[in-house]
Design a protein around this nucleic acid. Structure first.
Lengths: 209, 209
DNA sequence: TTCTCGAGGTGGTCAGACCACGTTTTCTTT
DNA sequence: AAAGAAAACGTGGTCTGACCACCTCGAGAA
């Protein structure tokens, strides 16, 4: 793998690619262990340091997890690691913060819409009851919503936004419990306009969205 | 920085942190050059390989760019690099693909909504004229929309989704030009229901969303 | 059978050596 | 003196080999 004529692509990138192939070929899933650094370096014909560069990058991306003395494992990636980093890198100016909030609201509304489309009566009722019976944490409530929305990708996006948001927002006072219950009830009606209105009250939104 | 009592955090993570401080302290912006690997390894009292692990991770994240023989530069990160990787990692099962498409539609609708809120009459008219006068590429059209939405974050999310989408979708036949024009006109009315209906026709959506 | 401890495997880190490639400087050559 | 060519230098790219810290597991001791 040393300086061939072509090369062009860096070794560590190539390793990421091949590692992906290995994972696919061996049908490795989240939680499974991948070959050790030394073994990879042999199998892929590269130096261990190059293998490590690839693994470290994947680690920072949150795709793998490394346990000293044990090995390296595939992770059930839900963003995260990367988020914390990106957030500190990116969240600098006021506009960015505004965008985060705006986007988060939109995504949450999207989820509500999906819930309306996909959830059964009983699921919605369970949500309502849970809301009534518990001390509602905002994150928990919307985690349930995003779950019901049954779209893993949008769930991940939301997760990221929550992280972004949290890392900035100093956690102000949360909405009252009643507003969550209202929202849950609105969902039960199946009328998205009611849901949107309820959500607006919850978030205290005056403007559009 | 060698094995102290504490350690716990890996050196390369610590380097990422300190690098961030350096960037902030020296007020480095996109396009600026950061210290060389060797210099960093001295300044931060770490081995060059550790520095490289940190840099490679940041590179894969798309935060920096390295030019052999020249140096390492801060990048105007707009996601991307990471996307391509993540996509190949994540896009495996059918459900994921469905989620991508669903999410993309939702985001695009969100953008349309934002456009309605934020754009001026003249901007909307310009959009319409542009649509009429050009051969409309789907990506180009919605790139304009996301731009008008004036939310950098959601723009980046959309970019990612487009990449995801493109890497799977074999680019089927695009909607006819008329549908884009319809959408542009609907935006001019300022009525979001019309916009949504128009978008639905464009995307050929029968179900909810 | 249970406990202990050490061997072996794994990640974490470093130092040093080359290579490939740009940039800059220096030294020709015209 | 100006222009071009060659060497020196700096930078990233990669490999090797050496330790360290830590975990697991099994052989042998109790």
């Amino acid at each position: 793998m040393r300086n061939q004529t072509e090369s062009s692509t860096k070794v560590y990138i190539e390793i990421v690619r091949q590692l992906r192939e290995i994972i696919e070929k061996d049908k490795l899933k989240a939680g499974d262990k991948i070959p050790s650094e030394r073994e990879l370096s042999e199998r892929l014909n590269a130096g261990r340091s190059s293998v490590r560069e690839a693994l470290r990058a994947l680690e920072l991306l949150g795709l793998i997890e490394t346990r000293r003395g044990e090995g390296t494992y595939i992770r059930d990636f839900r963003g995260n690691q990367l988020v914390q980093l990106l957030s500190s890198f990116i969240l600098q100016d006021k506009k960015a913060i505004k965008d985060v909030i705006e986007t988060k609201y939109l995504i949450e509304l999207d989820c509500l819409q999906l819930v309306l489309l996909k959830s059964s009566k009983s699921e919605l009722e369970r949500l309502k009851n849970w809301t009534i019976e518990h001390t509602v944490e905002d994150v928990d409530f919307f985690a349930r919503i995003t779950e019901l929305a049954d779209n893993h990708l949008i769930y991940r996006i939301w997760q990221i936004l929550v992280d972004y948001h949290r890392s900035l927002d100093n956690n102000k006072d949360q909405p009252t419990k009643e507003k969550y219950i209202d929202l849950a009830k609105a969902l039960e009606t199946g009328n998205f306009d009611l849901v949107r209105a309820s959500y607006r009250r919850l978030r205290d939104l005056s403007d559009g969205i």
